[in-house]
Each structure stands twice: as C-alpha cells, then as structure tokens.
C-alpha cells in the first residue's frame, strides 16, 4: 500500500488543535464558571450580584470614563501626528514614524516605571491619581493610535486631493471629505486598541494611581484570588464587549497590525 500523500493542509492540524485546547476550551470553561455557583449548579446570581453592587457599578463607570478620556486624548494627539506625517512630502519621514514606535519596544512596565519616577520627581505621584493614570495610559497606548490611521492615510490616492483642489475645495473640505472618511477604518482600529486596554490593564493604574484607582481589569485580579465564578462573569462581560465592538468596527484588519512590524 502506498503511504498517504503528504498534503499541505495537514500542516494546519497542530495549530487547530492548539487553538482548540488553549483558546476555545478556556472560553467555554469561563462560560461554564460564569453561570454556575460554588456547587457548580446553574445560576445567574453572578450576573445579578455583579450589577446590583453599587460600589462595583461606580467603579465600572469610573473605569469607562477613564478609558473614554484616554481614548479621546490619544486620538486628539495621534490623529494630527498621523495626518501630518502621512501628508508630509519629507523623504525620510519613516525615521520619524519609527521614533514614535520605538519606545513601544521597551518593556512596558519599565516605561511606566519611568513615568512614575518622573511624577515622583515633579511631586505629583500620589497627589493626582486619576490624572496620573490617564497620563500613563495615554503615554503607553499612544503609538497604537498613531500607526493605524497613518497606514490608512498613506494609502489615500494623491489624485483625490488634486481633484478636490481643482474642483475648488479648500484644505478644510479635502480634510473633511477625503482624509476623514477614508481613514475611518484606521481610526476605529486605533480606538479599539486603546479603549480596551484602558479598561483592563491594571498595571498602569496600580503603578501610577497609587493603587487608589480601580479599573474593571482589577476586578478580575481580585476575584481570581477569591471567587472564580464572579471573575469568569466579569471576563465574559468583557469578552462580549470586545466582540460587539469588533463587529461594529467591521473586524480586525491584519494590515493595521501595530508595533511597526511592517514598517
């Protein structure tokens, strides 16, 4: 008998099995924990308990507000940077883009530590916890917001701008009618990449907020020590938020992959 012919498709099997065991199964286990009580009976109490605790609710609101402010500030800084760089005729502009990406390659805890030292020096560490947290998050996540809009704007055909000015449009119209609509996918993927970590990455809020600022991600940490069922419920809610926002923003595009790997 002939040995079965080697097929390129079979190369997929190890990865598929890996995903099954370490991505799909964990999600199902989270789902199971979220809807059971400590005796492993079906229960929706975790859901009810989480949303009926006023202190939890106020933290959620705070956390969402912090994430929103972080996202808006990031956008206000990053969008003009992306726009200026993308429209620039400079020959070596990739060097400047590189400069914006470079700090991301320093370990992020060390980077946050650097800001902590800076705050300590100025004397605002432990004084303005919410400001410090937002500042740190903006600092940390800014490059995520620069690259995606930049890459989408680079792809905009120059002839569109020429056509716009030929037809009597000024700088403002070309920005509002060409740049903004065409860079929307980049803006959206930047927003999701900043908003989500701002709600969940508690390393920044712990180190810069003097452990006084609690964000949603910190709940999971606290529940991990005490109550996995509640922890899983919080994780599940975050998971749903992620999927809804991904669907709304039209999915994740691989070419907007950040961290400058494709620069």
């Amino acid at each position: 008998m002939k040995a079965p012919r080697f097929s390129r498709k079979t190369l997929c099997i190890p990865y598929a099995v890996f995903l099954l065991f370490f991505v799909i199964a964990p999600m199902l286990i989270i789902l199971a924990y979220a809807f059971t009580d400590r005796e492993m009976h079906f229960s929706v109490m975790n859901f009810v308990r989480f949303f009926s605790d006023p202190s939890k609710l106020s933290t959620i609101v705070y956390s969402i507000v912090i994430a929103l402010i972080t996202t808006v500030v990031c956008l206000l800084i990053a969008f003009p940077v992306a726009y200026i760089l993308a429209r620039s005729k400079m020959k070596k502009k990739f060097v400047i883009v590189m400069l914006f990406v470079l700090p991301m390659w320093i370990n992020f805890v060390l980077r946050i530590n650097a800001i902590r030292e800076l705050f300590n020096w100025i004397g605002i560490l432990g004084q303005a916890n919410y400001f410090n947290t937002v500042f740190g998050m903006v600092y940390d996540f800014l490059p995520f917001m620069i690259l995606p809009p930049y890459t989408t704007m680079l792809k905009i055909d120059d002839s569109l701008y020429e056509a716009c000015s030929d037809l009597g449009g000024n700088g403002f119209t070309s920005f509002a009618r060409i740049t903004l609509p065409l860079s929307k996918p980049g803006i959206l993927s930047g927003v999701t990449m900043v908003f989500l970590p701002s709600m969940t990455n508690y390393v920044v809020s712990d180190m810069l907020g003097n452990s006084k600022v609690t964000i949603i991600g910190k709940f999971i940490y606290e529940y991990f020590e005490s109550d996995w069922h509640m922890g899983s419920m919080v994780a599940l809610i975050l998971l749903i938020v992620v999927f809804v926002s991904t669907l709304l923003s039209g999915g994740f595009k691989s070419e907007e992959n950040v961290r400058g790997a494709n620069l």
């Binding site: 709600m199 990455n201 922890g231």
Partner: peptide, 30 residues
C-alpha cells in the same frame, strides 16, 4: 476551514489580555 481557524486565531488578538490570562489559568487548574 480557513475561515473558521482564522476566526478562532483572531480571538487572542482582539481579546483583553486579562480575559485570555484568566481563562488559561482557570483551564489549567480545572
């Protein structure tokens, strides 16, 4: 098959890291 594997492969990319981390930790203990 491609769409399915690719879709699942995207989950850790878009997911909050803490959710991935917790789900793995809970799975390993289970």
């Amino acid at each position: 098959v491609k769409a399915l594997v690719h879709g699942v492969s995207q989950i850790p990319v878009i997911n909050a890291e803490i959710v991935t981390a917790l789900s793995l930790a809970v799975t390993f203990v289970s």
